[in-house]
Computed example of a mutant assay.
Amino acid sequence: MQSPPGGHPPDPRATAPGGPAAGEAPDALPDVAPKLRELRRRRGLTLEAAAHRAGLSPAHLSRLETGRRQPSLPMLLALARIYGTTVAELLGESAPEHDPVVRAGSREPSQADGWTYHQVGSPGRAMQTLRLIVPYGAQGELVRQHPGEEWLYVLDGRVRLGLGDTVHELGPGDSAHYDSLTPHRIAAATRDGAEMLFVHTLLQSPDIFHPHF
Rank of each mutant, 00 (worst) to 15 (best):
Y136P: 04
E108V: 14
E24W: 08
R69D: 12
V101W: 14
G114K: 06
H118S: 00
A16C: 11
L132R: 02
A28H: 15
P26E: 08
E169G: 04
R125Y: 01
V167S: 08
R185E: 05
L73Q: 03
L90P: 07
L56V: 08
V134N: 02
E89T: 15
T66W: 12
R191F: 11
A112G: 14
E108A: 15
A95T: 13
P147D: 08
P12I: 03
A22G: 15
S94A: 07
F198C: 05
E65Q: 10
R131T: 08
G18A: 04
D11W: 15
D156Q: 14
P12V: 07
T190D: 10
P74D: 06
P10Q: 07
A80M: 01
V143Y: 08
P34I: 07
E65G: 10
L181T: 15
E93K: 14
H60G: 06
L203E: 15
V199S: 01
L56W: 07
H184K: 05
G44F: 11
A187Q: 05
E108I: 12
K35V: 11
P4Q: 13
L64R: 02
F198A: 07
V32Y: 01
L73S: 00
G148D: 04
P211T: 13
L79A: 06
P17E: 04
G164P: 09
H177W: 08
R191K: 06
Q70I: 03
P20Y: 01
E149L: 05
D31Q: 15
S205G: 09
G7A: 14
A112L: 02
G67N: 07
P109G: 07
L155E: 13
S72W: 11
P30R: 11
H146R: 03
G23K: 04
G121Q: 03
F209L: 15
E48D: 15
L73G: 02
L203K: 13
A189Y: 00
G19T: 02
V167K: 03
P100D: 01
A176L: 00
V134M: 11
A112V: 05
G114M: 04
H210Y: 11
T129W: 01
P74C: 04
S106R: 10
Q2W: 07
T116S: 07
R185Y: 07
D192Q: 14
P17G: 08
